[in-house]
Design a protein around this nucleic acid. Structure first.
Lengths: 239, 239, 239, 239
DNA sequence: AATGAATGAGAGTTCATTCAT
DNA sequence: TATGAATGAACTCTCATTCAT
């Protein structure tokens, strides 16, 4: 409920947040009990209420915190790109990396509609806001086609969320249970998805690459699978 | 637990499923209690266990049932389209209509990760399967670009889900609560989204329209924003 | 929460009410826990909430029920009196008898200010109403002096409550703990109190006795139940 | 736990007692938490246990303190009276004034049966002791009738408590909640109550007045009901 | 087929109290 | 003297599920 006023208190609150993230990721918000969280944090149950007024309060603090961090990661990634196309690619790369490292955010937000609609909307809207502003600037700069930034931003959000869910969070097995080691998106899927998005937006490099016949997939460094070259080459041929 | 053996039993089970859908839509799966469902169905609590072995069983039956119906609606919509582009458009139209009419499906599936991962994956995979098969055929027929049908199908699923969430289910106000009357997607947003998808897929008509610069928005009446003019250029030619 | 719909349910609710009265009498409302009540009633904790929506609901039902019964007892007692003075005496006699038998009412009502102010006021006001109506009629009939029925009724209520607390409920010892066997008011105290009240009201017999210098307290023996016949026998002689 | 040894300590303890009185008055003993009390006193929770060994200890210290002060107020009031009748009247006046100013005492004592029966009995017995001694002396002096001082003292206590509760503490509205501004007893009710008591005791002036039939109510202004005329007949003669 | 009473584990939360600083 | 973090037992209440009728 109150902010910690001593170092010890700060540490305790941090322990609780970390434990909560872990427990939420494992069991989800509803199934996670305060007692399991405090147990994992190795504090007494009563201690929880020193720093959070309720389970919901914890939830909202955690979502807001993770949301801030995922947006930071995404914009840092985008900033790393030398051009619009690279910025898009790197933003998504960071998004998936964050998802792999913090599955709690992802899962808990999807569960949040009935828990805290406000927190859920805030989460999506803030990410979309980032997309939208980037798209608006890019359109003004002629780097992308004449898309509606708002609608496109929501569409991008959807693509990222669904691809993330399918390829980052789902276990490879077919048993429907969650494996412990969430894997990042495979390179070929990632490239395919980026190409999908860039065609949808009419991103310049993509178009240019299509025009020049260059294979734009060479521009990224960390590709691990050889199957991705073909990913967006077709665009030119199609047009 | 068993299938009803009499007409009366069938009606009772149907009442329970309808009540469950309504209660789930209002409160979500976790918050919905058997007693609230039986109350709404106007049967005694014990009656519930005549037809469902557990709350989870009900959940899975309901999700599977709604999934079957939404896929039917989508494929009926797509079949109505005279060409590929129209099929895409009409499929989405039905998807959003179904979402507006059955918010329970939507909301409950998002909550389902920790309730029944199997049911959740099955739901998405079945829809994606439909997309994928359609895309595979369309690509073979040269109606769309050279996209990976699997990845593109997941991306489409993501776009549909997110646009549906944002524009069909969220109330217009900013209060974060859910209004009672879910509204279908506004026309201009719908057009913009369809155009986004068609550019991403390289749907034939779309590309052609983009090339000729024609404005085909006259085909539907209620478009409101100027950003949509180019979105569906192909339709005219198609018609 | 709901009324029982079967015989078994009725019995269970009755068991709960009886157990609650006993536990409230022993420990008071605040200290009594639902689990102690259900334990005493030999039902599961959850059963409690079949018939009461909360601890407070139980409290209010119990207070209202006991209030109804104490007023019945008092008015039955008063009706037994052959004249005004006897009616007063017998009403008080029943009040103390009820207090001895149902200490829960007494104790719980005094605790109720912060629990359910409404229930507390209702309790007192209903009893006072009975007094007030009786006094109003008595004054009209010239059986008592010219007192304000409302204020006098509250004063009577106060006398009864305090004498009851002191002489019925308090243990004889000085240790401040509660004995198990609450004793009814000793005869001499009872007579003294009745005389006090009758002087205050100017009850006919009392005044007459005062005038003639007789000591009306001598008229009765120490018996409590069967000895009452003669209790107000003098009244007639006095008048 | 210990008595404060410094000026600062004394102030802190005083702050705690004042805060406790306020919180008890607002919420009652059971609902009042140490943390709310220390919060209101603007000290840390741990500080509480420097001066009180437990919540119960605080309770008993507070009750004893307030008891001392109410008895002082009452006996000061009584001493102001020029004769027996006036002493009675002024004692009650102070009692109600104290009740209005310190509702905590009143309310908390009624709640105390299960909290600290000892403190409760002590509270009542000390006040009754004062009444009893006064009545004993008055009877010896022939100022009142031949009443049993002990029983009459308890009856007076009851009258005072009930009238105080009804007319001082209860809000005028019918909503059953407590208003913030407790009002002292209205004049007419006060007069009526004093008359009731004086008739019960056979206070000299009262009897005399009754005999002469004089109306002495003109002495105070706000009398509202006609039923009070005869109530304080003696006063005139006394003045 | 249908009822509704009964269960009991487990949830979130509060609180008087202790203790290291 | 004063702080505030930490404790853990105990509380009220909910719920999916079982069972006798």
């Amino acid at each position: 409920m109150n902010q910690p006023r001593t170092k010890r208190g700060e540490q305790t609150k941090a322990k609780l947040l970390a434990a909560a993230e872990a427990v939420f990721a494992e069991q989800g918000y509803q199934a996670a009990s305060i007692s399991r969280i405090t147990e994992r944090a190795r504090v007494a149950q009563g201690t929880f209420y020193l720093y959070f007024s309720s389970k919901l309060d914890l939830f909202e603090q955690l979502v807001d915190d993770l949301n801030r961090r995922v947006r930071k990661a995404m914009s840092d990634g985008a900033a790393r790109g030398a051009n619009r196309a690279e910025a898009e690619r790197e933003g998504f790369r960071e998004f998936f990396a964050f998802t792999a490292e913090h599955p709690a955010l992802y899962r808990v937000v999807r569960e949040a509609e009935y828990v805290s609609p406000g927190a859920m909307r805030r989460h999506y809207e803030r990410i979309v806001e980032g997309y939208r502003d980037g798209l608006t600037r890019a359109r003004a700069a002629g780097e992308i086609g004449d898309v509606d930034p708002e609608v496109a931003a929501w569409a991008l959000m959807g693509v990222g969320e669904m691809i993330g869910m399918r390829y980052v969070l789902w276990p490879t097995g077919d048993d429907g249970a969650f494996g412990s080691g969430a894997t990042p998106v495979p390179d070929d899927v990632f490239d395919e998805m980026v190409a999908f998005v860039q065609r949808a937006l009419g991103t310049a490099a993509s178009t240019a690459a299509a025009a020049t016949g260059q294979d734009p997939t060479t521009q990224h460094s960390t590709s691990q699978h050889s199957t991705t070259e073909r990913a967006t080459a077709h665009v030119k041929e199609d047009s």
